Amino acid sequence: MKKLILIRHAKATHESGYADFDRPLKQSGMQDALMMAEVLKDRSIVPEIVVTSPALRTLTTAQIFTEHLQLPPSQTNIKIYEASESALVNVVNSLPNEYGYIGLVGHNPGISQLLHYLTGQLRDVPTCAMALISFDNDDWRSISNEDGHLSFYDSPKG
């Protein structure tokens, strides 16, 4: 059995002067990320590792989660940045099989599309929302359309 928690990055600035890749989190985004990491900790649904887009806002979100949950530093994958649904499915299929529970921090619309693809469920995925998907599969490479079951969903909006 594999478990994947999809996490959309926390709220980032839209101020001018930043390239999209380099947009930092707002203070409220940092607070949301810490709050959502605490939700995972309280529910004992902590991933073994976190894989993230290397964009500043996702990297910072992942760092807040890994530090608060006392996980190893997150691994980056450029394929997550601006990824389409099919690109994210490829990322999931290439996750390291030695891990049974992985966190993936990314961007919308890709995270919403991936959630729908894997579970068949349409959900609003605001910044810092989390969706835990459980699979009966034992191999990340075998995961495909609607293989997953949404077992937990939460966002800072409640």
Rank of each mutant, 00 (worst) to 15 (best):
I49K: 02
L122W: 10
P126T: 12
L150E: 02
H9E: 01
F21Y: 14
E48C: 03
P73F: 08
D136T: 13
D136H: 12
Y153C: 00
L4M: 07
T66I: 00
S86F: 10
D20F: 11
T58E: 00
E67P: 04
N77A: 00
E15L: 08
L40M: 10
R23C: 08
N90V: 09
F152C: 05
A55L: 12
L118Y: 04
L40K: 03
L118S: 00
D147R: 05
A129R: 11
A55D: 12
S44C: 11
I111E: 09
S142C: 01
N137E: 10
G148Y: 12
A131E: 04
Q75C: 04
V92K: 11
R8V: 10
H14I: 10
A55G: 06
D42N: 09
K2G: 07
V46F: 02
I80C: 00
L56Q: 13
H149K: 15
S151Y: 05
F65V: 15
W140Q: 00
H149L: 11
T127F: 10
L104R: 03
V51W: 02
Q31L: 15
I133N: 02
S151E: 15
L56H: 08
R23K: 14
A12E: 09
I78N: 08
L122P: 00
A87I: 06
Y101C: 05
N90D: 12
Q63M: 09
V105L: 08
I7M: 08
K41S: 07
G17V: 15
M1N: 04
T76N: 04
P54K: 07
Y99N: 06
G100V: 03
N93T: 09
N97M: 13
Y101R: 09
K3R: 14
E85H: 09
I102M: 02
Q31V: 15
P126E: 13
Y153N: 03
R123N: 13
T60M: 14
T119M: 09
